[in-house]
């Protein structure tokens, strides 16, 4: 749910990175944070455990520039991927405008990917959203690992709707900005329709 402020001429949108534990959601945000100009980004907040696992969420505010005199601001959030943090995941989806699903390409994580995708669908439904309608992008992360499943196979299982999808290696930035731009574009297009 975007926030449009006519007075300060700003539009704020919320994008959530979803996916199974250790798939690279936080790494996506860290790469974006490291590679953007200081004037276009705010502080990266990570609420994590002592072992650097996301406990509640990561948060990164980004400015993307102006459209027709309105400053566009995107608030990027990640959810905690570990299965038992489901109550927290549900909360973070509140008011979401667009979702990125980060899949772990490793063959042994296929089941976790499928479970997380199903969990996303259910949790979105609980908040009154439909995964088939919301701006949605899939990222196949960890493409550099030797045990990665082929993109075609991942696509078949995780992206039957054929939404935009991108291969990625988040620590080196491959696919990270393509994914972000794609979801941001979908969110703005949805706003244009007036449906957000």
């Amino acid at each position: 749910m975007s926030f449009i402020n006519y007075s300060s001429r700003e539009i704020n949108c919320k994008i959530v990175y979803y996916g199974p534990g250790l798939c690279g959601k936080t790494t996506n945000l860290q790469y974006i944070y490291n590679k953007t100009n200081p004037e276009t980004k705010g502080k990266l907040i990570s609420l994590s455990t002592e072992t650097d696992r996301t406990l509640f969420f990561d948060f990164l505010p980004l400015s993307l520039g102006e459209i027709r005199g309105f400053k566009t601001r995107f608030h990027l959030y990640t959810v905690p991927g570990q299965v038992f943090y489901d109550a927290s995941r549900k909360l973070i989806l509140k008011g979401v405008d667009g979702v990125v699903f980060v899949a772990d390409s490793q063959v042994e994580r296929m089941e976790a990917n499928i479970e997380s995708m199903e969990n996303l669908r259910v949790n979105l439904q609980d908040q009154g959203y439909d995964l088939n309608k919301i701006p949605f992008v899939v990222q196949y992360n960890k493409r550099d690992l030797p045990n990665a499943v082929s993109e075609d196979e991942l696509r078949k299982v995780l992206n039957p709707r054929k939404v935009p999808d991108y291969p990625a290696v988040a620590p080196t930035g491959v696919g990270v900005f393509d994914t972000l731009k794609s979801v941001a574009k979908l969110v703005l297009t949805e706003l244009k329709k007036g449906g957000a």
Partner: peptide
């Protein structure tokens, strides 16, 4: 009270990126 973005074009969005 329609969306102020109803007027924007795909080109506007592309320009941003």
């Amino acid at each position: 009270a329609g969306s102020p973005f109803a007027e924007i074009s795909d080109a506007d969005i592309d320009n941003l990126f």
